[in-house]
Amino acid sequence: MTTDPQILVQAICTLACYSYLIKENFAYRIAEYTLVALYTSYQITRLFHSFIKPYWQNYAIGEKQYYFILMGALGLLLYTRYAPPQYRWLARYPIALSVGWGLGGAIARSPRPVFTQLMDVMRPLNTANNVLFFVFFMAVMSYFFFTTGKESKFIQGSGRLGRYIMMIGFGTAFGNTVQGRISLFLNRLSFLLTDWLGISI
């Protein structure tokens, strides 16, 4: 067994988490609350040292871009949400500016990958796989045609095929997710056996 204090703490944290599989208990709750607290503090520290501090030093002070001071003051208005009700509306200004900036980017950029995917769907129908891909795609799309679905027998049948294809898609996603989690579990198990207990596997 290792005497490295860091590995010891890692092992205690891992075991505390897994103790939940038997029953909810003191060790698990401490682990859960610790993770929430540490992660929040970690993100605050990361944002502060990666954005606030360098942007302030480099742009507001270094390059004398004084509008950074104005933007910082606008950002501080976010905290008026904790002020008495008559001042809370001030928080809407920084929210509006950042949401607007994000939306403009989303309107311009978000269609690009979707259109690239749509172009790839329209493959030349020269192989069985390409034909199947196109048929499956159209079948899944037709599942969401709610306007004509009830009247048309063709759309009904195609929608049913679309439902089967979607279940295949969900099955692959489910299988991959389960395996992803199991590989994480094996990683923790390997850590406990090899790094902590020193058993070679």
Partner: peptide
């Protein structure tokens, strides 16, 4: 402009601390 908007909303980083 992009950096200044990022700087603005990063000023709200202590809201998580306050809420908790």
């Amino acid at each position: 402009i992009s950096f200044s908007v990022t700087f603005m909303y990063c000023m709200g980083l202590f809201m998580g601390l306050i809420n908790l």
